[in-house]
């Protein structure tokens, strides 16, 4: 088994042992219970928002918790002195974050189907969640690596959400006019929200969908290359 596969296997095992996956599942269960008490139309409307919150906020939160715990335990430094590259370690943690996002999307989709019989374009949703998951893993890392501890990371996350996530939620509830959506697409949160809503509603605006995908892919690449990777190595070396 290659180093990357072993790293991923170890990371997934730790997602369970550190109760990160169970916590994520518990959140989804709350959404599922919610679906039991609302109509099909309401469920179809609210589902994209729930998946979006999991991908755009919960995954950052859980990645930050995991990062600061590992920093405290010194395990990243230990992994840096074994065969394998820092890039592989980062890739592993990104995969773990994407697994959390996908787990939430799959469970929410399954609940929608079994409770309300709602189906939609699952392939598009999984593709969009994967792309958004990678971008938000990069954002999560960038915030975690710039914070001293989990508490200060929460402060940064709040600031990020205030700037990017809340406007997107306001848009979702028609508080912000639709004509401003192109402007809102600068926000990674809204790009994610737009893509997930498109997949669940089946209402694709081709230009905006392609722009959203490209934006999130480029954002993830730029953040990983210039903001995350150099700082990750530096942080690991400093301990």
């Amino acid at each position: 088994m290659s180093s990357l596969k072993k790293l991923i296997a170890g990371e997934l095992k730790r997602l369970v042992r550190y109760k990160i996956l169970p916590v994520s599942l518990a959140t989804v269960i709350i959404w599922i219970v919610l679906f039991l008490f609302i109509s099909e139309r309401e469920a179809r409307e609210i589902a994209p928002l729930l998946i979006f919150v999991d991908v755009a906020a919960m995954s950052i939160l859980l990645l930050g918790a995991s990062h600061h715990l590992e920093k405290q335990e010194g395990t990243i430094r230990s992994m840096m002195v074994m065969p394998g590259s820092p890039g592989q370690i980062l890739a592993t943690k990104t995969v773990a974050s994407m697994v959390l996002a996908l787990e939430s999307a799959v469970a929410t989709s399954a609940a929608l189907f079994f409770i309300h019989g709602v189906t939609f374009n699952y392939a598009a949703l999984l593709l969009f969640v994967t792309i958004a998951g990678a971008a938000h893993a990069a954002i999560g890392f960038a915030l975690s690596l710039r914070s001293r501890d989990f508490t200060s990371m929460l402060g940064l996350l709040m600031a990020y959400m205030f700037l990017f996530t809340i406007p997107s939620i306001l848009f979702h509830f028609d508080v912000i006019y639709a004509k401003y959506e192109w402007l809102l697409m600068v926000s990674p949160s809204h790009a994610t929200n737009h893509l997930i809503t498109s997949a669940v509603s089946g209402n694709f605006k081709i230009g905006m969908t392609i722009a959203g995908c490209l934006y999130l892919v480029i954002l993830a690449a730029v953040l990983f290359k210039f903001a995350v990777y150099p700082r990750f190595k530096d942080n690991a070396a400093r301990g």
Binding site: R14, E73, G74, T75, R77, S78, G239
Partner: peptide, 12 residues
């Protein structure tokens, strides 16, 4: 490499 501080996964 033997670090001065513990470098292990505490929940494992």
């Amino acid at each position: 490499v033997g670090f001065e501080v513990p470098v292990h996964f505490s929940k494992l």
